[in-house]
Design a protein around this nucleic acid. Structure first.
Lengths: 127, 127
DNA sequence: CGGGATATGCTAAGAAAATAGCAGCTCCCT
DNA sequence: AGGGAGCTGCTATTTTCTTAGCATATCCCG
C-alpha cells in the first residue's frame, strides 16, 4: 500500500531516468546524459533536491559523489511497467508483451527460446 | 527518426495519462481521475495548453469538449514501452517480457497460448 | 609543493507551471 | 419562458522549478 508515487518534475524525472539507466552516476555523468543539458550547477542543485526528497542517496568516491537510487531497480522496474500497462494496455500484460514482441528490435532465436521456457514455466505454475 | 519526446510537465503528464487510459475524456472526467485534484479551472487551463502544444485535440459533444490524444495509442504505447525498456532493462525487451510474466497478475492459460503463438510467429519471421 | 581542474554548499533570481477567479454562453428542466 | 447547472474563454496570481553564480574544499600532476 505504501507506494507513495511521488510526482517528480520534468528535470527530476530526467535525472532519475539517467540514474536508473546507469545504475549509479556522478553529477558530471548525469549532465552528460541529460537532454538540453543545463549548467553543471543546475544538475547539482537538482541532485541535492532529489536527495532531500529521498529519491537518491550518494556515496563518496574520492572527491566526488556518486548518486544511487533509493528504490532499487527491481521495484522501480515493476512500478514503471505497471504504470505503462495500466495506462496504455488497459491493464493487460499480455497485450503489452505482444507490443514488445513486435515493437522492439528483433529478438534472436535464443531469446525466443528463453521466452518460450518462461511461458512453459508459467503454465506449470498456473495449473 | 527522432521521437521528439516532448517533455511534459508533471500535471500535463498526469492529464495525458488519464486521456490515454480513457481514450477520450472531458475536463470533468480528467479532473475526476487526477491525483490531488486541483480546481476545475486548472484542469481546463492545462487542457487548453496541451491543445495548443499539439498533444490533444477536442471534439464538441453538445455543450462540452471531449479531448483526444493526437498521437494515437498505438504509437504512444510503443514509445512508452521503448522508454521503459531503455531505462530499466538495459534495452532488453526480453528482460522486460520476463518481468511482465512474473510481475503482473497471473495470466490464464488462454493468454499463455496466445503468447506462445506470438513467439512462434516471431520465430518464423525471424529466420 | 603549488596551481589548475574538478568538487561541493549555498543562495538568489529568472522562467515556467499550476491554480484560481470572473464573465458570458448553452443546455435542460419545471 | 425563467433559472439553475454546467461549460468555456481569458487573465491574474501564486507557487514551484530551473538555472546560474560565487565561495570554498579537495585532488592530482608537473
Amino acid at each position: 500500500m505504501p507506494e507513495a508515487v511521488v510526482q517528480l518534475s520534468r528535470r527530476e524525472r530526467q535525472i532519475m531516468d539517467v540514474i536508473y539507466r546507469r545504475g549509479r552516476a556522478t553529477a558530471a555523468e548525469v549532465l552528460e546524459d541529460l537532454p538540453d543539458p543545463p549548467g553543471y550547477s543546475s544538475v547539482r542543485a537538482l541532485l541535492r533536491l532529489l536527495e532531500e526528497k529521498g529519491h537518491v542517496r550518494h556515496e563518496q568516491d574520492g572527491p566526488r559523489y556518486v548518486f544511487l537510487p533509493i528504490v532499487n531497480r527491481e521495484r522501480a522496474r515493476k512500478s514503471a511497467l505497471k504504470h505503462v500497462v495500466r495506462t496504455f494496455f488497459d491493464g493487460s500484460a499480455t497485450d503489452a508483451v505482444a507490443a514488445l514482441l513486435d515493437g522492439e528490435g528483433k529478438l534472436d532465436s535464443s531469446e525466443l527460446d528463453r521466452l518460450s521456457a518462461m511461458i512453459d514455466e508459467a503454465r506449470r505454475e498456473g495449473r
